[in-house]
Nucleic acid binder design. Sequence first.
DNA 1: GTCTATAGTGGGATAGAC
DNA 2: GTCTATCCCACTATAGAC
Lengths: 236, 236
Amino acid sequence: MTFVTTAAAEPSPSAPRRARGEQTRQLILETALRLFRERGYAETTMRAIAKEAGVAVGNAYYYFDSKEHLIQGFYDRNQAAHRAAAEPVLTGETEFAARLRGVLHAGVDVNEPYHSFAATFFKTAAEPSSPLSPFSRESSPARDASIAIFRDVVEGSSAKLDPELRKELPELLWLGWMGVTLFWVYDNSPEQRRTRRLIDGAVPLIDRLVALSRLRVLRPALRQILALIESVRRDD
Amino acid sequence: MTFVTTAAAEPSPSAPRRARGEQTRQLILETALRLFRERGYAETTMRAIAKEAGVAVGNAYYYFDSKEHLIQGFYDRNQAAHRAAAEPVLTGETEFAARLRGVLHAGVDVNEPYHSFAATFFKTAAEPSSPLSPFSRESSPARDASIAIFRDVVEGSSAKLDPELRKELPELLWLGWMGVTLFWVYDNSPEQRRTRRLIDGAVPLIDRLVALSRLRVLRPALRQILALIESVRRDD
DNA sequence: GTCTATAGTGGGATAGAC
DNA sequence: GTCTATCCCACTATAGAC
């Protein structure tokens, strides 16, 4: 048994706290992602990453619990890049369909250079118990940030829609985006054109559906769908 | 360079051809699946499988290219079990919704005992390049057999629907079934009740949508959806 | 707290003898 | 078809330097 102090608030204002460690961490991550792109995920060994970064293998494991954990860094970075790429359309467009379409294409744009890489490591993200799963607790910051983009799509748009649907829509659109991403991972057409066509074809349909949600005759159907979502969400 | 003869048609009628090899193969597969269930996929080593089956590791690799290839046997078996479990509803029911609902629940019933096992090996099936991917060439026999079940759902039903939709529907329903399976893998509610609720909630919606497909006013929308499917299918 | 070096474990996969 | 021996790699352990 050892005596453990809770970390006292570090008052020293001038010292660059943890600058060194953060730098090493970054170096390892950058090196890993570069090698993943150049050689693929499976073909890149931890030895190679450490050697290329000029650190010891143990040091890489000091910062990243496992090879898979290096991918979390990739997520975070891509998430930020998606937000940035979506910014122009989110500030410039007001129509719902145009906003959604722009955001989805921006997402694909950002992912594009990593397509072959993504396909090889996708398997690790797919495992339900993996911290890399988009539904995992560990991924929730990135997930929330991603859902926020779609909330922005809805709230900044001129579309008038059913208030309850409006509440659910961001998460539904994010789920759709996950579906598009899944499709994209499996899409081996040149430049993933099929994914682009999927987006261009699906957005008008969604737009039409969302617009129809306000019709009184369709209210029962909409209620039925929302009830389904609600019942499926319940965790028992 | 070695001289290779194409396998001549073995005329010997009485000899039990390949009986020995087939037996060993079966032994290894059964042992592997048993251990997977008992200990989980990742925790079961090839060494352990070989030892338990009483063969050398190299011998296991003689019959199965990799550990993942052992799972293909699991698929084939489950596929057959799904067909069998669906049989009663396919012969007894004539309403579309009831047939679809019955087939989906039968599928979940069949998978149920393997839920935790499925979650652990799901990752390997998720990789697009994996032969275990439901979209891979190697899986096409099992996939075709599965689609055939849904073709049966449609063709044996009393539902009247748009002829073009009728042609596409089996594959769409199979895709939906893949979605349900995906949901099921991630579903950790007790006894996977959320998946059951998803089925019970989604089937009436699909039924309603399919019925609506015959309305003349909705023809343009239906055409739009079918065109989207067509354009997404195109491989360029 | 950050980092190195080294030696090891264990598991997927393979080579080549028989 | 079957085996034994071996390779490679993710990952761990450890002991210690700064």
